[in-house]
Each structure stands twice: as structure tokens, then as C-alpha cells.
Amino acid sequence: MKIPCTMPRLKGYRFPREIVAYAVWAYHRFALSTADVEDLLAERGVIVSRETVRNWVNRFGRHFADCIKRDRPGTSDKWHLDEVVVPINGVKFWLWRAVDADGNVLDILV
């Protein structure tokens, strides 16, 4: 996990920026609930309420997303579409994947 570029100062916050960054990252990266993030932090010895996690996500989530988008490589002009049939529990599903010339996945559709 990388702390986003120039994370805002956390003056007046009880926890250091590494803990806040980890909580917001885990919430978005793994699509966890605030209760799950609360439990995850409690396992690591950080006692924090789910309301605090929700406030962190609301306050710093947009900043994380902007930094991730800015650091992501740009797409090139040429790209191609892959199609694969994937059997899941005996049922066939079609997986389409758009990939640019540099190998970056643009979108996936099942």
C-alpha cells in the first residue's frame, strides 16, 4: 500500500497518517464495510469506531482516488478486445476485456 502523493496534513487528528491511509485504502481496495475496517484495525491494536472510519473515507477518499488516477499510466491510441469463454459451476460465461497497446486493462465485462 502506497500513501498517496502529498496526503493532506492531519493536524488535530488522533491517529498518524499511515493508519488513516491504511483504513481508507482497505475500505476502497477490498470493498469493505466500515465495520470490517474497524475489525481489521482492531486486530492490529488500533481501536477506532466505524463512524471515524466513515469520516476518514468521506474526507480523504476523493484525494486517494485523484492520486491513483494521476499516477496511473495514460492509455495509448491502439487497443484490442479479448473474448474468452469461462465455465463457472458448469455454466458458460463470456469474458470480454479491453487492453491497450501497453498491456493495461481498460475494462472487463462478464
Rank of each mutant, 00 (worst) to 15 (best):
H28S: 10
H28L: 13
H28F: 14
H28N: 06
F30V: 01
F30L: 00
F30S: 01
A31R: 01
A31H: 09
S33L: 01
T34S: 11
T34K: 04
T34Y: 00
D36H: 13
D36M: 06
E38H: 00
E38Q: 14
E38S: 13
L40Y: 06
L40W: 04
L40T: 01
L41Y: 11
A42F: 08
E43D: 15
E43W: 05
R44W: 10
R44C: 11
R44F: 00
R44L: 00
R44M: 02
G45Y: 12
G45L: 09
V46C: 12
I47V: 15
I47D: 11
I47G: 06
I47W: 03
V48Y: 10
V48L: 12
S49R: 09
S49P: 00
S49T: 13
R50Y: 01
R50Q: 09
R50S: 09
R50C: 00
E51D: 11
V53E: 06
R54Q: 13
R54M: 07
R54H: 08
N55E: 00
N55F: 06
N55Y: 02
V57E: 05
N58C: 04
N58T: 04
R59T: 02
F60K: 04
G61D: 02
R62W: 05
H63S: 05
H63T: 02
A65N: 05
A65G: 03
A65P: 05
A65W: 02
D66A: 14
D66T: 10
D66F: 05
D66I: 08
C67M: 12
C67P: 06
C67H: 01
I68T: 08
I68F: 08
K69A: 15
K69R: 15
K69W: 11
K69T: 11
R70F: 03
R70V: 01
D71H: 04
R72I: 12
R72D: 13
P73D: 04
P73Y: 11
P73H: 11
P73M: 15
G74K: 10
G74I: 07
G74V: 07
G74T: 14
G74E: 01
T75E: 06
T75I: 01
T75G: 13
T75S: 12
S76T: 12
S76C: 07
S76D: 01
S76E: 12
D77Q: 06
D77F: 09
D77I: 14
D77E: 03
K78A: 13
K78V: 14
K78E: 09
H80F: 14
L81V: 11
L81M: 13
L81G: 04
L81Y: 02
D82V: 10
D82Q: 13
E83P: 01
E83T: 03
E83I: 03
E83A: 14
V84Y: 09
V84E: 15
V84K: 15
V84H: 15
V86I: 08
V86T: 14
P87T: 08
P87A: 04
P87H: 05
P87I: 05
I88Y: 11
N89A: 10
G90K: 04
G90V: 10
G90P: 14
V91Y: 00
V91F: 06
V91C: 07
V91D: 09
K92N: 11
K92H: 04
K92S: 10
K92E: 08
K92L: 08
F93P: 13
F93Q: 09
F93S: 11
W94Q: 15
W94R: 12
L95W: 01
L95T: 10
W96P: 04
W96Q: 10
